[in-house]
Amino acid sequence: MSKLSLLDIIGPIMLGPSSSHTAGAVRIGNLAREIVAEEIEEVKFHLHGSFKETYQGHGTDKALLGGLLGLSTADPKIKNAFELAEEKGIEFDYLPVELDGVHPNTAKLEIKDRTDKTTTIVASSVGGGSVVIKQIDGINVDLNGEYHTLITLHQDKPGVMAKISRVLEEDELNIAFMKVLREYKGALATAVIELDHNLTTKKLRAIKEIAEIKEARIIKPVK
């Protein structure tokens, strides 16, 4: 765990009533927006556990949607998230779900964007406004949105990670955390690389040009 800042004690400035059910929900929405990175057409929020039981009383519904619209945890407009989404022509719905082995404050977001692509994101609000993106499209990523994060989908071959780090190294981009996950040897693997600084568009392109890389995206940190 990183060292506590005094801003963890006094703050954040946020809309009530709950750091986990409201502020954390906004951050889940913010991160989902970053991950999708396209105009959103429709979203289904599948709510699990305590999110399912108390989402209206905590404003979790408005918080998730407001976050997806790009509002910050302290933005009073979150209270009008339903109206704002309607103005933008975004359809939204809240549904109960039972997910296995997840934190009680978990939501599964099914987001259809204007390119007709659907992205599925599973995220948990783990306390004090901190969140963890557990899965993107079924792939375990476990990222917390505190770093610039590079996510790749690549062929599981020796040397791919070295090629990626070479690109990062050229810009002296320091890797804070990194994990590589694969379903089975030689198949497709995912790397989640959390960086201290942002990756330029040029660098992202260089990564995408690596022969074994199928997909690569960068997710900016959210406050």
């Binding site: 400035i13 409201t22 502020a23």
Partner: peptide
Amino acid sequence: EVNAAMEPIVAVPTAGSC
């Protein structure tokens, strides 16, 4: 009460004890 009404507060140390 302002917190429960979904208005801006400072979490000190949490929203529940703000």
